[in-house]
Design a protein around this nucleic acid. Structure first.
Ligand code: MN
Ligand code: MN
Ligand code: ZN
Ligand code: ZN
Lengths: 150, 150
DNA sequence: GCTTTCTTGCAAATCATTCGCAACTGGCTT
DNA sequence: AAGCCAGTTGCGAATGATTTGCAAGAAAGC
């Protein structure tokens, strides 16, 4: 797991960190890092492949999956498994705020990010009360636009 | 979707409700309903098949999956997709308290149930604030036994 | 530049879950 | 009690996202 960034991770610091971890920064990995850094959404593997082909024309889907697994293991990307869809990815420090959770509009599939310190706080308390500490969590709200209040 | 139970669902009321919904209560479905009602854990499909074979020796895995899908559509069972495992199931009103969420011990795979009104409350507020209403949610804590405080 | 080791692309394999279909059977109708 | 028939079942084959084996290719370090 790569050290928490002193400066926000730039492509350069990231590349260096990976290399230091004995992970070669190949053209395909560099491309995926760039594509992920630019993503404002939560793309899946085929979509990332499509976007990376701008940099590396023949990049294979296997490589995309393998790279995502590697980057996930390094703590550089996050994998989300929303209901009934294939895995979606995002850079680990997407929002500089760091951690956030997701709302999925069940009608449009739009993904909305949010974060509640209160909830994060409560989670820890609940776990602690039962004698556990949280390793990670999954918190997803499947929502629908509210009917206008009448 | 079957009406919320006036009395807690017994096998009898459930059977009647299903029949009323035009769903035949076959031997295999009755067996699965019983097995689910007795489950104190969160079994997956092959495990449910194993347990149902006491009642219906040759019950097929396809039927187990099909029945679970049917019961889920009727709001009688819940399907959980915990990280990296196959789907697990439980009766919808498992705890009479009704809704609850889950903690998964990442070391032992043990599943612990919990419920926090505060968190349920906050969820609704967060969604409402963004103009949404919650259809359903997924809230899972992946945990590890806390190191004894020293 | 040369070597070693890690990576890639391709095709084939996984694996949980779903499906097609012919045989079967609940539950209602006579 | 017997018959009917749409809903169900068991079987095997299909799915589809993700993973893997392997031979050829390319980062780093020397
Ligand atoms: Mn996000
Ligand atoms: Mn439960
Ligand atoms: Zn969170
Ligand atoms: Zn909840």
């Amino acid at each position: 797991m790569i050290d928490p960034p002193d400066q926000p991770h730039t492509l350069e610091t990231l590349t260096a960190a990976l290399r230091a971890a004995g992970i070669r920064v190949t053209r395909q990995r560099a491309a995926l890092l760039r594509v992920l850094a630019q993503a404002v959404d939560h793309p899946d593997a085929p979509e990332l492949q499509k976007r990376a082909e701008g940099d590396v024309p023949g990049i294979s889907l296997s490589t995309v999956y393998r790279t995502l697994a590697t980057l996930e293991a390094q703590g550089v990307v996050l994998r989300h498994q929303f209901d009934g869809t294939s895995a979606r990815f995002e850079p680990a420090q997407s929002t500089e705020s760091g951690h956030h959770d997701h709302m999925i509009d069940v009608d449009t599939s739009e993904v909305i990010e949010f974060c509640s310190d209160r909830i994060e706080q409560l989670q820890a308390e609940i776990a602690a009360e039962l004698g556990y500490e949280i390793v990670h969590h999954r918190f997803e709200l499947y929502v629908r636009k509210a009917r206008a209040r009448d």
